[in-house]
Design a binder for these strands. Structure first.
Lengths: 94, 94
DNA sequence: ATGTGACTATTAGTCCGTT
DNA sequence: TAACGGACTAATAGTCACA
């Protein structure tokens, strides 16, 4: 993945400064990109894949565009439906 | 990861039979195990790592034992704090 | 130094549309 | 076929006291 790291300037409710990726969005966008690529490779529509996973088409749409923050169980379901290892979804195409 | 796959027998709210890992729990337990291993390798306590990530110690405790289902943003934060690639967290130790 | 239950706030995830 | 929105419900994120 090679996520670029910066120490954030914001503190949480406990006054603790958390390590935070500047590009968490990039991270999510990349994840979505991988999912979309694998889906297309297997010739499925969003609806077909969504049905296979038991998630909603509209939600899958958001995941693929990186505008959702899915839990790991959803990620596991997607990997299963795509027939790939979870790790594949987190690879960067760079 | 090599998750064992079975087609589930349960249907979701739409009456669609979703592909589901029987051992989603195993998946989560393994993830937690990796996190714990990497944390110990870097000599941090749960509290230290939790503070680094900006999450709660009690929540990290649950993640490490596989009794939480964290979102990918939490996973990204943990990987960053541990100084490893996200992919490392999803490796199986088998 | 960690596990656990209980609890609230916030977000994930569903479901209906329209473009 | 997919993006996008609004409104809703289920689940997770996050807090705390105590073992």
């Amino acid at each position: 993945m090679a996520i670029t790291v910066t120490l954030c300037t914001e503190t949480n409710s406990r006054g603790v400064c958390a390590v935070e990726p500047v590009n968490l969005d990039t991270f999510k966008v990349n994840l979505g990109r991988q999912i979309r690529r694998l889906r297309k490779e297997s010739g499925m529509s969003q609806e077909a894949l969504a049905d296979h996973c038991g998630v909603f088409r509209t939600y899958l749409s958001r995941i693929e565009r990186g505008s959702a923050n899915p839990s790991i169980s959803i990620i596991a379901l997607l990997a299963l439906a795509l027939g790939v290892d979870v790790i594949e979804l987190f690879r960067s195409d760079a």
